[in-house]
Amino acid sequence: MNTKQLYTVIIFSENTVGLLNQITIIFTRRQLNIETLSVSPSAIQGVHKFTITTFAEKDMIDKVVKQIDKRVDILKAYYNTDEDLVHQEIALYKVSAELFMKLKGVEELIRKYNARVLEVNEDCIVLEKSGHYEETQALFLELSRSIGVLQFIRSGRIAITKSKVERLSDMLSAMEKKIQANQ
């Protein structure tokens, strides 16, 4: 019961200044570390979507998400575990051009990891790989062992739920209907 697991918190908000702070202070109060964070405009114009991952106990994440959902500028907040989600991260790897050229089995490597080459110049080569954390990490480890990685960056998780349509659009249209009915 009291074991921590990784939760993905998905938040839809109005696009107002200072919202990220309002959200992160709720994590801070409960001493939850944010593992990854991704913020971008959602499919609905004017609505922003936050995808945050954190290790927490079920009881704790439940309370935290309710406290986030209650903030005035938050349209909807909910959480999922990995089973409910299709999720992805993207990683970029910069390696030495000279060492990469000398590396044996480049084709196998690219195929094995389904990586893409984004940039080739005299100094360096930039690879891109998307996938789960373990997958982007595996390529990082393999490159580190063989030729070294000059620079590495991984994005925060983005995710969509497997089962339902984006719940927010339903909610917004229901709200609009209610408002019109009251007028």
Binding site: G18, N21, V72
Partner: peptide
């Protein structure tokens, strides 16, 4: 003020 007040208000706006 907004940064200070956010944790202790329902809403804070500049």
């Amino acid at each position: 003020v907004i940064g200070i007040a956010q944790p202790i208000t329902k809403w804070a706006y500049q």
